[in-house]
Design a protein around this nucleic acid. Structure first.
Lengths: 227, 227
DNA sequence: CGCATCTTTGAGGAGTCTCAAGAGAGGTGG
DNA sequence: CCACCTCTCTTGAGACTCCTCAAAGATGCG
């Protein structure tokens, strides 16, 4: 891990990230003035469950997963974050600033760190920042509710079909797009073993889904919806 | 469903609920001044997924579950709330005030409703209320993360053992306590069919768990932890 | 005491995981 | 440009978990 200063390009990425939309510009500036950047190799552990966390983290580049580990090396992904996504926010807001899960880089990644004390202080001064954080938490909550409901209501095939429908481009005809990460990462995100994802893809072939590497073609969305 | 005024006893319950701890008293009063109470039979639907929601809800009495429904009548519980618990908060904070799930009373219940407009207005005026709401969201997020991780990492037997350990009284020796709701509700909360919960209980008998109606006796916590 | 509801138990089956091996993709160096 | 290597992905087989359906046994309420 290397620590760097925030350059103007990174700053640009941050200013445009969803967390800061609607926040007073001077608040954003004060948040970013205390920020620094860390650089990680693929596979690096960013933090461990139970460790103290002292910054709000935003992905500038790369990919991060947040996960819990269970017995015998089993792991469960709680979230996967890419450029512009915020993570580690919970540790900041609850009294104990303790990570509830592990964080790991899945690709070479650049992470911006915003000082927690400054963030807390600004929360108390500027309600526009407060609303932005609440918005973030609500979105996160909604994503988790979706994951939990999908896990409990859908089969593996259905979860994959559901994911494809939500992530493929608009439009009626056949569409094609690229997965934003490795299939094994998608499998983890969906709560599946990689083998199960693979089997789901080959099952969905008969519903007009063609997979070539990371490129997915969906020929008939209607058929997918009925999977 | 009947609509009532907030009486002084209900007001008392609300003032002591976790959401309002640390919030300026005049803010709490302004929130409660616009509140009303609704009364529901067991089984009543409080709201449906996709409906607009215009109030923050707090359980005064009874039991409420929030759930999604899938194909063929399947349902997945996202949360179970009892006296003092807040729900429906997400609809208030995100721009679209739409419920992300269904809400149902599981017992005869009294629900306090706090006007959404007033709550939003006070969020913009009083950061102490903002922190309280963020605290609530973080706790909720953490609960959901726990549910998701438990679903993915533990077997049915382990989930039940885990629940018992987290909800039984402190102390080293044998302890006994009462489930706060029907077993079928617990099953839903843990993402299990009622039959699976029942089987888990009878499996855990050999680990020193005795079940008589809603009363649970745990004779050896250590044995449970290793389940 | 009787009825409705909730819970337990049994049997069978669908779905997903694990392990193991083979196929494919992507990158590197000759 | 091709051969090679590594890593990822796919496929197969078997085991296990949990669900579903059905019926019997508790529990609690009027």
């Amino acid at each position: 891990m290397k620590t760097l200063r925030l350059n103007s390009r990174d700053r640009d990425t941050l200013v445009r990230c969803q967390l800061f939309q609607g926040v007073r510009p001077d608040t954003v500036n004060r948040l970013l003035d205390g920020a620094h950047v860390s650089s990680h190799e693929s596979g690096d552990i960013l933090f461990r469950e139970g460790e103290a966390i002292d910054s709000l983290m935003i992905v500038l580049n790369g990919l991060v997963r947040v996960y819990r580990s269970g017995r015998e090396g089993r792991e469960a992904d709680l979230g996967v974050f890419s450029a512009g996504d915020v993570f580690g926010e919970c540790a900041i807001l609850s009294q104990e600033r303790i990570a509830g899960a592990h964080g790991q880089a899945l690709e070479p990644s650049l992470i911006a760190h915003i000082d927690m004390h400054r963030a807390r202080q600004l929360l108390a001064e500027d309600t526009s920042f407060g609303s932005a954080v609440m918005g973030l938490l609500c979105r996160r909550l909604h994503d988790l509710q979706n994951s939990l409901a999908d896990d409990r209501l859908l089969t593996a095939h259905q979860r994959v079909a559901h994911y494809l429908l939500r992530h493929c481009p608009e439009g009626d005809g056949p569409v094609s797009f690229r997965l934003p990460f490795q299939k094994s990462v998608l499998a983890g995100k969906l709560g599946l073993a990689p083998e199960a994802l693979s089997r789901a893809f080959s099952h969905l072939r008969q519903r007009g889904v063609v997979v070539r590497g990371r490129v997915i073609e969906v020929h008939d969305k209607t058929a997918l919806r009925e999977a």
